[in-house]
Computed example of a mutant assay.
Amino acid sequence: MNDEPRYNYQKEINNLRSQFGLDFVSVALVQPAEDRFVLTWQFVSGNINNRYKRIVLQSGRGIAGVVFKTGKPLLMKNVNMDIGAKDLFNYPIIVAERLQSLGALPLWSYNRVMGVLLFGFRQENALTEALFHLIQEEIGPEFGSLYAKERVIE
């Protein structure tokens, strides 16, 4: 039996949302091999509906899929400028939660991306580079059993 305490991702994302005044924070985790390594949003804070529960992403699709595939942080200051309206259907979490400004960080376990931390606002240009870096620093290298391996270098 494993006596190690289970990390409370829900508490952590609730704290992040409150601390930084974010509208939405979520963690997508990779599902097991029998599910062909799809990503699903497991923990959310600040959601306006439950559509996130039906979102299943393959590597390279959607925000979580892109960050999962590349292993690189992503910052979109203004969704309307960064993604054309006709391409929004490829980003279901943005549409479902009406996000306009967001950031996403890969969460690693050893040498593999195992999850994605997504955070953002429902107003354009609300997530600045400075705030993006500050949030990265706040979560630090440890995020439960996962860690933020790659740091953005200024």
Score class of each variant (00 low, 15 high):
residue 91 Y to D: 00
residue 56 V to I: 07
residue 108 W to L: 02
residue 119 F to T: 02
residue 140 G to M: 12
residue 13 I to M: 11
residue 59 S to L: 01
residue 141 P to F: 15
residue 53 K to N: 09
residue 113 V to K: 02
residue 88 L to F: 05
residue 97 E to P: 06
residue 81 M to R: 15
residue 36 R to E: 14
residue 147 Y to A: 06
residue 24 F to M: 11
residue 4 E to G: 07
residue 129 E to T: 13
residue 130 A to T: 11
residue 95 V to W: 05
residue 75 L to A: 09
residue 22 L to T: 02
residue 86 K to V: 05
residue 147 Y to E: 02
residue 109 S to M: 02
residue 107 L to D: 02
residue 37 F to M: 09
residue 50 N to A: 06
residue 110 Y to E: 08
residue 71 G to Y: 09
residue 4 E to P: 05
residue 108 W to G: 01
residue 101 S to G: 00
residue 42 Q to M: 14
residue 87 D to R: 07
residue 104 A to W: 02
residue 143 F to K: 05
residue 65 G to E: 03
residue 64 A to Y: 06
residue 45 S to H: 10
residue 107 L to S: 04
residue 25 V to F: 10
residue 94 I to R: 03
residue 22 L to Y: 02
residue 133 H to F: 14
residue 3 D to P: 11
residue 11 K to R: 14
residue 140 G to E: 12
residue 117 L to W: 00
residue 78 N to M: 04
residue 102 L to W: 04
residue 45 S to W: 11
residue 20 F to R: 07
residue 81 M to N: 12
residue 121 F to A: 09
residue 81 M to H: 14
residue 119 F to P: 04
residue 57 L to Q: 13
residue 53 K to H: 11
residue 42 Q to L: 12
residue 138 E to D: 09
residue 137 E to I: 04
residue 7 Y to D: 05
residue 41 W to Q: 07
residue 103 G to R: 06
residue 15 N to G: 07
residue 19 Q to H: 10
residue 67 V to Q: 05
residue 136 Q to I: 01
residue 2 N to K: 13
residue 67 V to L: 00
residue 37 F to V: 04
residue 41 W to G: 04
residue 77 K to S: 14
residue 66 V to M: 06
residue 71 G to H: 11
residue 13 I to Q: 11
residue 139 I to A: 08
residue 134 L to E: 15
residue 132 F to R: 08
residue 136 Q to H: 05
residue 32 P to T: 12
residue 147 Y to N: 09
residue 77 K to P: 04
residue 12 E to G: 02
residue 4 E to T: 15
residue 24 F to A: 10
residue 30 V to K: 15
residue 124 E to K: 15
residue 62 G to F: 10
residue 59 S to T: 03
residue 66 V to Q: 09
residue 87 D to P: 03
residue 111 N to R: 12
residue 144 G to H: 02
residue 100 Q to C: 03
residue 4 E to R: 15
residue 25 V to R: 08
residue 32 P to E: 15
residue 51 R to H: 12
residue 7 Y to V: 08
residue 67 V to I: 03
residue 96 A to P: 01
residue 49 N to D: 15
residue 75 L to T: 06
residue 105 L to D: 01
residue 148 A to Y: 07
residue 135 I to M: 01
residue 67 V to S: 01
residue 112 R to V: 04
residue 12 E to Y: 14
residue 149 K to P: 01
residue 1 M to I: 08
residue 65 G to K: 00
residue 86 K to Y: 03
residue 78 N to A: 06
residue 53 K to F: 07
residue 16 L to A: 08
residue 107 L to G: 00
residue 102 L to G: 00
residue 95 V to C: 06
residue 39 L to D: 03
residue 13 I to R: 07
residue 127 L to P: 04
residue 4 E to S: 14
residue 128 T to I: 01
residue 46 G to Q: 07
residue 73 P to L: 07
residue 9 Y to L: 10
